[in-house]
Design a protein around this nucleic acid. Structure first.
Lengths: 219, 219
DNA sequence: TAGATTGTTAATCGATTAACAATC
DNA sequence: TAGATTGTTAATCGATTAACAATC
């Protein structure tokens, strides 16, 4: 096992894990790199190479034990302190994410969730106090105190674009490690906070550019 | 101008376009590659190289005219027939996307939208006939007829994971070019349909893996 | 052992970027 | 013209993958 995982591999880890959770759910006990390749569309040599960064997970002439690989992922996800997250902005997108993440069904050896979502925030008075998913909505004014008290390290940002930078500013210096930014605008924060941006508008446009390119290739 | 745009460039095009729309909104008339680099975190040489695939957009010693670049993007987005999309699955995520895409504010020279979202589908009888955003919800049973009648080429898929493959199957052979798959599961469709997958759960996990890696690098 | 698939080597491919000539 | 920044060349870097030795 080498100890620096390349960026290209990191980007595929979540895909691998989801695939193995699906296999586990289906009761499939082992799988080979060639079969995985077909399922997820990644070259089998790339898969073997990627897995080798996580340890020697397979057995020659046999393949990979589903359970062994899932446990390797959980070891990777295991951290000294539990990681807590809050979500800010309870519009439709915020609600969708609350439903994904607040279902506390899995937290055992196989299905450890990397981050526990424990609270929701919004500026709208009418939402404050409501229960959505299984979390209570707090007012944005209490954000800083909450983050400090509960040692929050991750933030899911689903506020409108115009509010994003202001909220992002208020997150600095509180020990936040990462922001999943779904606000459709770039935010600037201190270097020590990792921002991962997803813009669904851009995703549709990227799909469109790919199709366009493919069509032009034909001519 | 070269005529095959590399994959790495295609993945950045939407980011560039969004940035230029923001600049235009702010009334900024020109911009240089170095300044762009700071805004979006892409090396200035990469930006110049990427732009050169779209034509000679800049002027030496001057930079890029914001309007000129936006027009170049719109030429790229311009297609012989208008591209229509439907959204399938009107849960919270579906609603969030409806609000993004059904606002028909922009469709001029500067802000051409690549795809027009024109209808929504769900299997729930209670939603059918309702107006969400500015679109009407149809019953899923009418999907095939609708796609054929209105020459739909793009589908935004926001159904639960368990329903995704079945819906995807029903989309084959109808002229669909691309699917934006937000259903949190891999779908298998014919080769001629491009699938672009976004899983918000995986995105959070990827952020977590990046932070983990960064922390381990420190030790 | 024989058969099969992993883990890894080495070659190939594509993407990034430093550096600078072209040129506005 | 002088100054500046693009567009592009060429070098570097990182990712992919064919091929196979290691080994279960």
């Amino acid at each position: 096992m080498l100890h620096t995982i390349p960026n290209a591999t990191i980007k595929r880890l979540a895909l691998y894990r989801r695939c193995f959770i699906e296999l586990y759910d289906k009761g499939i006990k082992r799988v080979q790199s060639g079969e995985l390749s077909q399922r997820i569309g990644v070259d089998s040599a790339t898969i073997r190479r990627d897995f080798s960064y996580l340890g020697e997970l397979g057995r020659q002439g046999y393949g990979y034990e589903v359970r062994t690989v899932l446990e390797a992922f959980n070891n990777l996800l295991k951290t000294e302190e539990t990681q807590h997250a809050v979500i800010i902005g309870i519009g439709n997108l915020g609600r969708a994410l609350l439903n994904y993440f607040s279902s506390d069904k899995f937290n055992d050896l196989i299905f450890k969730t990397p981050v526990d979502l424990i609270a929701a925030f919004d500026i709208k008075e009418s939402l404050v106090g409501q229960q959505i998913g299984n979390l209570e909505v707090h007012h944005l004014s209490g954000l800083k105190a909450y983050i400090e008290k509960h040692q929050i390290t991750y933030v899911i940002l689903t506020v409108p674009p115009a509010a994003a930078q202001k909220v992002a500013n208020s997150l600095e210096g509180l020990g936040i490690k990462g922001i999943l930014n779904l606000s459709s605008t770039v935010i600037n924060v201190a270097e020590d906070i990792r921002v991962h941006e997803v813009d669904l508008n851009m995703e549709l446009e990227t799909l469109f550019f790919y199709v366009l390119q493919k069509e032009q290739g034909k001519k």
